[in-house]
Each structure stands twice: as C-alpha cells, then as structure tokens.
Amino acid sequence: MSASGIGVLAILALVLAVVAMLPRVEVQHPAIALVRVLIPSWRFFDDISESPLLLARVATLGAPFGPWFPVLPPPRRALRDLLWNPGGNLALACNALVDHLVSDLADFDESGAIRAEELVSYQLVLNLVRSTLAAMSQPATGIRLQFKLAERASTTTSTPSDVMISLEHGL
C-alpha cells in the first residue's frame, strides 16, 4: 500500500477515534430515524436493559377476557441458525418493535400531542398480536383482543409490573 493510502487510513482512524469520544447526542427528527440503519453505531451496550414482555389476551363476544399469554415465546436455537435463521431474525425484529413502542410511549408521555393508539409503533405491535393470534388459529368472528407490555420479573417469585395496557381491539 502506498504512503498516501496509509495516510488516508490513519486520518480516517483518527476521525473515528475523535467521533467515538464525543458525547452522545440524541437526534429525534423523523428523517434521521428513517436513515439510522445506514449510520453505524459502535456503542452497542451503553444502555443495557431487558425488553418488556408482550402479553395478550382474547375474549369472545360478551364473555370476559381469558388469561394473559406471551406473544413472543423465546426462540428455539439450533446449530443451523448460524447460517440460516429467518425465524430468529424475525423474533429479533419483533422484540425491537416492542422496544420501539416503549421508547415512543416515553416520548408520548412528554409531548401528549397524540393518543397512544395513533402511534405507528402501537399499530405495528397490534399487527404483531393479530398475526400471532391468526397463526394460532383463533376463531376470527366476534373476538376481542387486548395486549400489554410488562416488565420482566426480577426474581422467580415477583410478578411482572405493567408498562402499558392497550385498548380493546377486534381481531
């Protein structure tokens, strides 16, 4: 490699090091949110927290709701997942969706400009619940559903606390 090439790489490394040391700035603009997948982030673990549980329950017309059940069961793992794992990627995306809703709800509490059920992330989580119930072959006539986000129990004896409970929706 030529001396000029090494120089360019050295300058690039220096710029990256300086940028990495800058204080983190949260950019909330929606246009930035759209392109965030194109912007690399090396701070993977600066805010370690567990994703909340997504629970749902269903009721037939006029009947009370049944018990809450988890919508996103932990994925089963196999050796071939190292090479081919669309289900695992989907589970990861669904968990990211739940995290996104939690983040939006925190911003929503501050702004209060729109109702929670108008959030796109709320609608996407509702789609997720509906898709899961459809995959479980729940009958589709007169079914009502409700979902909630709950913090995971810190011990086996404690019960999870609710983060939010949705309105009732049709299936």
């Binding site: 081919w84 669309p86 289900g87 990627n89 989907l90 796109v120 609608q123 996407l124 789609n127 997720l128």
Partner: peptide, 22 residues
Amino acid sequence: ELFAIRTTFADDGIWRWSTLRR
C-alpha cells in the same frame, strides 16, 4: 432470509404498508 419471512411485509402482515405509509 427476508424472502423467507416475506409474509410479514404482506398486506396482512406485521409491517403492512397500510400501517407504515403514515
């Protein structure tokens, strides 16, 4: 892998366009 889970992007999937287009 995205092709394998393409139903999640379909018109009745999780990331359906009718929700995302807003």
